[in-house]
Design a binder for these strands. Structure first.
Lengths: 216, 216
DNA sequence: CTAGAATTCAAACGCTCGTTCCATCGTCAT
DNA sequence: ATGACGATGGAACGAGCGTTTGAATTCTAG
């Protein structure tokens, strides 16, 4: 085994540690084969790491799944809340702005070159699977984000009663997650920069979702 | 050996055959735990059937998965195409009518009391999973349905170029699948019949999707 | 340099998986 | 009744699973 990462002198600068390599491989393989479908042997082989390293560093496979989520969701939700706070600072704000605060950070992640695209697929899988313990983990750690967005959506859509709002937000979040998960597949028009493509996609998604939320 | 072409009792067997019991249990368990997550031992135990019956009647687990889809999709797509044909008979037809032909049969299935609700969840899972062989099976058997709908959508949305149309249809089909998969969970308002609830839901979904498709 | 902690390693654990084998049962036509 | 055959039953196969172990190795602090 080749120690690709020799020790960093001075500061403990984060080189590519065993933990990170495991997380990267797990993310990719969970996106491709699902949580039950990807085995720890596949993960550790792909990460060039000993099988036992998973249980040493993460304790269990379920915990590894949780950490795959935590690594990305912590920063993603930070960005979402920061964007939402900026929107809410204005005396008046539009539905499209709230949607933008929700969509743009995730879209940026789905087009990142560091494997974030894979993670958005993992997220879509988590939506489809109704894994109880995973849902509990997500609720325990990130429900406050959804609550804040739901409140903002409620302000932007005062004519909808609460039940109708939740019902529509459910469709929208599912649609957005699915759309963003497939973003890696969608090819951008030639002669368009990645940033342009992303902004155009965000614009479409926001218009799409806004139209659905306002309809009726 | 292989029981694929066994005599079809069909007419004279009023009780539920082993094959059907396996399909029912598999559908429920695949919806709940995924294709990799649900084992044949769980399936056969739930169906009160010997473990070996799956491989006797279906050949393999993968084939069982395919047959779970075929059983529902054959009739679902028939209904969709029939509804679409009715819409296309008119000299002029609206986007909402085409969407209705796509949504209403699936919605009826998702609210059927014979386990169809479970199947719609299986469908949503198949969307999220990118299983190659399953996708090939679905494409081989049902791509003509999607083609006909895509053509109808193209006629109803002449201002969209082909690429833009496909891109939006992708979001819409994902959104609709997710929404319908969660229909079992959504509780209807008190004092509303199931039929009313379904029609209202269809109306919402169609408006939602139409608004998104037309936006921009 | 050295002791001790942290990490990696090969090997094995018990278990469940999909699949297969073969004996047995039930139901027909002969 | 008998033989043939589809269907079912119980038991086992090898493979792969997540997890654990204990020794070997690497890192780090004194």
């Amino acid at each position: 085994m080749i120690g690709a990462a020799s020790r960093d002198p001075g500061l403990n600068t984060p080189h590519f540690s065993t933990k990170q390599r495991i997380l990267d491989s797990a993310e990719t393989l969970f996106a491709r084969h699902g949580f039950a479908g990807a085995s720890l042997r596949q993960v550790t082989a792909s990460a060039n790491v000993n099988l036992a390293a998973v249980n040493y560093h993460f304790g269990s496979k379920e915990n590894l799944v949780n950490e795959v989520f935590r690594r990305r969701l912590d920063s993603l939700n930070e960005e979402r809340l920061a964007a939402l706070a900026t929107v809410l600072k204005q005396p008046k704000f539009t539905l499209e702005e709230v949607l933008g605060a929700f969509v743009r950070p995730a879209l940026a992640l789905s087009m990142a070159d560091d494997g974030g695209a894979g993670f958005v697929r993992v997220l879509a899988r988590a939506f489809a699977e109704h894994n109880e313990r995973l849902r509990k983990f997500l609720h325990d750690n990130y429900s406050h984000v959804l609550k804040q967005f739901a409140a903002a959506f409620g302000q932007a859509l005062p004519h909808l009663d609460k039940q109708e709002l939740y019902w529509r937000l459910d469709i929208v979040s599912g649609a957005l997650t699915y759309a963003m998960a497939d973003f890696g597949v969608i090819k951008r028009r030639p002669g368009m920069s990645e940033l342009q493509h992303r902004d155009l996609a965000a614009e479409h998604l926001i218009k799409f979702a806004a139209a659905g939320l306002k309809a009726g």
